[in-house]
């Protein structure tokens, strides 16, 4: 593709990215499969979780030996935290471990849906921003919550498209449109996409980027799906940048109306 045909790059704070696809590292069969998907997807940023050291496995290769911080921007998350306090501590652990200011802030409010606890997310975001973090909050597709997070100083907001790991796709495009129109920071759609068309829709709506894990990791052929997602994200973004034609209810002929033969 020529420069003009390539989607524009984008930034979060000091970090610049060309790829608009951020992928996770959970649920893969192996670190190697994860790496191959990351390479094929074109993703430059990969999320990780923080958990207690597995002493039994500690002698073998670890995730970061394969998904290397020298090669990818690693985005530590606070997954599994149900309170602002735990999320804040986990974010600080991630900063120590990865020497990064980035954190994907997740404060979960409900076990079955994994929907965020909005007040706790706001509280944790405020503390972490004061502490110098670049906070990327996972949040409900709620325009007001997204506005509040942006006002606190989050350099991007990450509304969900559907519950984490559900593969349900973009459940509320209207809310995403309102978020995109009313929030001045980049919007990264995080969670819920199931297949390539979902990814394209998110980018066509104007999302700056898209974060996904299960849609690739739990495809029957994850590497092939990683490629599909790369193409879909690029296609969706290019379509957004192109500016789609207006929709109309009735047909508008593409072939000339003049000069039609009369047999």
């Amino acid at each position: 593709m020529s420069e003009q045909d390539t989607p524009e790059s984008w930034r979060i704070g000091d970090h610049e990215f060309r790829s608009r696809l951020i992928i996770g590292s959970g649920k893969y069969e192996s670190f190697e499969q994860n790496l191959e998907c990351a390479e094929v997807s074109g993703a430059e940023m990969v999320t990780v979780a923080l958990r207690r050291v597995n002493f039994d496995a500690a002698k073998g290769p670890r995730l970061l030996d394969v998904i290397s911080p020298e090669r990818f921007t690693i985005l530590p998350n606070t997954a599994g935290c149900y309170t602002a306090e735990d999320a804040i501590t986990t974010a600080r652990m991630g900063r120590e471990l990865l020497e990064t200011d980035l954190v994907k802030l997740e404060v979960i409010g409900d076990e079955r849906t994994l929907f965020p606890d909005v007040p706790a997310t706001l509280e944790a975001a405020r503390v972490l921003i004061d502490d110098g973090f670049t906070v990327l909050p996972y949040i409900t597709d709620d325009p007001v919550a997204c506005q509040r997070l942006a006002a606190l100083g989050c350099p991007a907001v990450m509304p969900l498209a559907a519950p984490i790991g559900s593969g349900m796709g973009i459940r509320n495009p209207a809310n995403l449109r309102i978020i995109l129109e009313t929030v001045e920071v980049p919007v990264i759609v995080d969670a819920g996409v199931g297949t390539a068309s979902d990814a394209a829709v998110a980018l066509e709506l104007g999302a700056t980027a898209l974060l996904m894990n299960t849609a690739i990791a739990h495809a029957k052929e994850p590497v092939k799906m990683a490629r599909a997602m790369r193409l879909a994200v690029d296609a969706g973004r290019l379509a957004y940048e192109s500016g789609r034609m207006p929709q109309r209810l009735y047909a508008s002929a593409s072939s000339p109306l003049d000069g039609i033969a009369n047999y």
């Binding site: 996770g24 979780a49 958990r51 120590e96 996904m212």
Partner: peptide, 25 residues
């Protein structure tokens, strides 16, 4: 902080958490 590993002394009943990066979304 890493720079304080040599300076922080552990006391009886301290709760130590040692975390690593694992796969996650």
């Amino acid at each position: 902080p890493r720079s304080r590993y040599g300076a922080v002394t552990l006391a009886d009943d301290d709760h130590v958490e040692i975390l690593e990066a694992v796969g996650g979304g």
